[in-house]
Design a protein around this nucleic acid. Structure first.
Lengths: 237, 237
DNA sequence: GCACAAATATTCGGTCCCGAATATCATTGG
DNA sequence: CCAATGATATTCGGGACCGAATATTTGTGC
């Protein structure tokens, strides 16, 4: 009934609104603007998505077409401008994005949650590989930040890269520590992990998995029903 | 031709493979297993998505239906098992996810990149709000980790929450610092930021925006073409 | 034993989004 | 001057995903 389509899922829509907050423009120009300001590093920017997003905003009356230039030369360029409601929505949305942290799912967090499925030696190799890649990225980011500073860009315009750097740095340090813990054997549970994979014996593996499964993993509500996992028709074979 | 559908986009598919690496099961049981192990905190888990993902994997011959139980009681439960190729894919994928860091777009990074669109006072309020929320989340996470430790779960099974905590902690500290920098006025560019929003004068605002835009924002390739932004037919009005 | 709620297990429709393709214009140089 | 290349600007098809709806069974109180 009220809002025809998407809510506040796609941050690209916010980017569009903020662009239009400054001046009316056509979609491609928004892309240019965002790229010029290196926002592509903080927002997932996709040429194809832009037009859909803008249309969506138009349906929700947050932006409106101001004029369509034809000029005979270029293909039609539709210039959009922000509406009253759009301006309000932009500031509200932005405010909310800062105020309310949402759960996110970084790749490495996901990967680590399954790391025991990998033999320790392979995990080690992979971690070292990531460590080097992260070091490289940190160097690149530091370079960009230095260049921006030298160009006279005030910090307030590059807060996002400060934070990004801090996060990557944290990840780097964590990975480094983890590598050490495995190398020195100080990681709690490492013998068990090794046992899983050194065992030629399938049943041991299976057993170990069940151990992991059977361990009481308390949720935040602290008392979780132990799922009774139905019938033991587990079959032979 | 070769792979009918999605590649390695959805980590839920990896979760499915890892589940099946341990034992054959039906989709709902995978969900149970993942929830029991609190993987829902590290993987975006959606009941509806599961079936689609599993079908996809079946098309790619990474899993196969082993048997379909009817039992007369419950609706049909199709039990899947992993294939040889599936097992290889799982380990490869996992290894890659660890080895190769991919660019990610945390909400706060996106939000900060537009923070100057917000009046400083509103930004301040929002930041303080987030700060409190993050503190709370940190406490919850610490509680869960302590509970897990007391329950005897070895660290190697909860690496993902260590990392998550480290990341949230970094974010918290960054937000705290930022609040201080604004409060004490030590943030570089803060007067400019204030000027944007204190000006009743529209033209000043517009001008300031252009300053931000005109500033040479060097990309990682260090020399970016200054986009000539086409014709100065900017129109009157 | 029956109504009602909760858990179990899966289906389905709509929508969002990505990437490739298209179409036009500008520029270069043979 | 026209073919080739690259930048400009937009369209489009189709797959993936989310969340709500659907069945069915189990449990609970009366």
């Amino acid at each position: 009934m009220s809002s025809p389509r998407s809510n506040r899922s796609n941050p690209l829509a916010l980017a569009v609104l903020v662009c239009l907050l400054e001046a009316p423009m056509h979609p491609y120009q928004m892309a240019q603007t965002l790229r010029n300001r290196a926002k592509e590093h903080s927002i997932r920017l996709n040429y194809g998505s832009l037009y859909g997003v803008v249309e969506n905003l138009e349906k929700r009356k947050l932006v409106q077409a101001r004029e369509t230039l034809r000029e005979g030369r270029r293909p039609e360029r539709t210039i959009y401008e922000i509406t009253e409601a759009g301006a309000r929505e932009a500031l509200d949305w932005l405010s909310d994005m800062i105020s309310v942290p949402v759960k996110e799912y970084p790749q490495l967090v996901a990967a680590l949650s399954f790391v025991v499925a990998l033999p320790p030696s392979e995990a080690m190799t992979a971690l070292q590989c990531r460590y080097q890649a992260l070091q490289l990225r940190l160097l690149q980011m530091a370079g960009m930040r230095r260049a921006a500073a030298e160009a006279g860009l005030p910090d307030v315009f590059s807060l996002e890269s400060e934070l990004e750097q801090a996060l990557v740095d944290t990840e780097l340090k964590y990975v480094g520590d983890l590598i050490d813990r495995i190398a020195t054997g100080s990681l709690d549970g490492l013998p068990m992990w090794r046992a899983f994979h050194e065992a030629d014996d399938e049943t041991l593996k299976r057993l170990a998995a069940e151990v992991a499964q059977g361990l009481p993993w308390p949720g935040p509500e602290s008392r979780e029903r132990r799922t009774p996992f139905t019938d033991p028709d587990a079959s032979s074979e």
